[in-house]
C-alpha cells in the first residue's frame, strides 16, 4: 500500500529528527516566534495560490484538511 509506505517514510523522518537533533530550548524560540517563520506566513497568498493551482492541475491538497471545493472550471 502506498499509504503505508508514505506513513513509514514519515515515521522514519520523525525518528531521525528526534534523535539526531539537540532539543531546542524555550529561550531559543525567538526566531520561531516570528510571524514570518510560521508555516503559513501569508494566509491570503496561500489561499489564492491554492485556488489557482487547484483549478489548473490534477493534484491537490497536502497542506491540511477542510475548505470546501470550489467548482472551478
Amino acid at each position: 500500500m502506498v499509504l503505508r509506505k508514505l506513513l513509514a517514510c514519515l515515521m522514519a523522518a520523525e525518528a531521525l529528527s528526534g534523535c539526531a537533533m539537540q532539543q531546542v530550548q524555550p529561550w531559543e524560540k525567538d526566531l520561531m516566534a516570528k510571524e514570518e517563520m510560521q508555516l503559513v506566513p501569508d494566509r491570503i497568498e496561500e489561499f489564492f495560490d491554492s485556488r489557482v493551482f487547484f483549478s489548473r492541475e490534477g493534484a491537490f491538497g497536502g497542506k491540511g484538511v477542510g475548505g470546501g471545493g470550489c467548482g472551478c472550471n
Binding site: 520523525e14 537533533m21 524560540k29 520561531m32 508555516l39 484538511v65
Partner: peptide
C-alpha cells in the same frame, strides 16, 4: 480528507513540517 501531520523545530533556525493527507 484525513490528515496526519508533524511539525518539528529542528534547530533555532529551522522548522520542518511533514503532512500526509489521504
Amino acid at each position: 480528507d484525513l490528515q496526519l501531520g508533524v511539525t518539528q523545530v529542528l534547530t533555532r533556525e529551522t522548522l520542518l513540517q511533514l503532512n500526509l493527507v489521504h
